[in-house]
Design a protein around this nucleic acid. Structure first.
Lengths: 193, 193
DNA sequence: CCTACCGATCGGTAGG
DNA sequence: CCTACCGATCGGTAGG
């Protein structure tokens, strides 16, 4: 086995699919489009993958597991609720900047999953939301967060950076680390001086 | 003519289409789905509308014009740049809460427009963004806003409330006015106390 | 990994 | 406003 192995065709397909699904949306992205991008005929894709939806499933569930794992770790840290929220937001930000295409698919295209995966996915999301909500509720109760509607805080924080994977790095000269700090600051302090 | 006119079939179709496009996405929403929701056969839809894409165009361009009109008015007010930003954000919030379905279509489904409408739409968006950017740049220069990356501030503000049309009012007991104030507070001050 | 092809579904039209 | 239908495109399979 060579030490510098070439990327497998399967992983090429997955990467191209995430990009394609992000660009056109899952439904509008055709397997013929995808085949062209990896230089195959549509029928040959099926030597590497099971189905179009299998790709979507893989992307959605992988990110869902990542978020739940991060939640698990943060919950066990001996830090304040406010600090837990900051840790989680940093995780969201880094993921959005690192896995641009597939995270957009995770955010926007999961609704095209079919049963029973759709329900399983909704359950994982609900679990994450519930655990995030619990942290927020405690932070509001202890006075770490302002006394705003808990559900509103939750949705605002969970969805505040859905645009970040679409962020075009060429628009600014920020380094990855500066970008993370500035985005975090906007989430925590808004646009106040 | 009766004084209490029934909603025209055409406007019923448009309303149902906005909801359907929001739920399933434009591509996944079929004209047969839509016909069922307004109790017609698919072919009969075409007595009221020109095409599926005509509905998408109407929704996208109507909201684009609304935003540009609001921008025009705000630009002419004799108030600070910071106050202009607040006015614009309030307009975004109210629109998101009032025109739930069609605003989601405007936000998320415009990419399914085809040429030349796609380019026209992008131009209108670009115009709105440029004018919003100009306000932000002045506000940063005058010290009303913190010295963060202008593009980052712009995208954060433009997209911060994309989740709001999905906000489920049943999740909380806030009135429309309380909701507007709390969302605005989160945008301006983040989650700080 | 390809050619050839399948049944299903799509947006939309003809004709009454 | 309906029935009947069209060509195009879809995800995917057979067979080699």
């Amino acid at each position: 086995m060579p030490s510098l192995e070439k990327e497998s065709k399967k992983s090429q397909i997955y990467r191209a699919a995430a990009q394609l699904f992000k660009e056109k949306g899952y439904q509008a992205a055709s397997m013929r489009d995808l085949a062209e991008r990896v230089e195959l005929r549509a029928s040959s894709l099926y030597n590497h993958i099971g189905s179009k939806e299998e790709i979507l499933q893989q992307i959605c569930f992988e990110h869902a597991q990542d978020f739940l794992k991060a939640m698990q770790e943060v919950e066990q840290l001996p830090i304040s609720q406010g600090q837990k929220i900051e840790r989680l937001l940093r995780f969201h930000i880094r993921k959005a900047l690192k896995e641009v295409s597939s995270l957009t698919v995770f955010n926007d295209e999961w609704k095209h999953l079919s049963s029973p995966q759709l329900e399983e996915f909704r359950d994982l999301r609900k679990d994450y939301e519930n655990r995030f909500r619990a942290i927020i509720e405690q932070a509001v109760a202890s006075g770490e967060l302002p006394n705003l509607d808990t559900e509103l805080l939750l949705y605002a924080l969970l969805n505040a950076i859905h645009w970040l994977p679409n962020w075009n790095h060429r628009n600014s000269e920020l380094t990855a680390s500066e970008l993370e700090e500035q985005v975090l600051r906007i989430l925590l302090k808004g646009i106040q001086k």
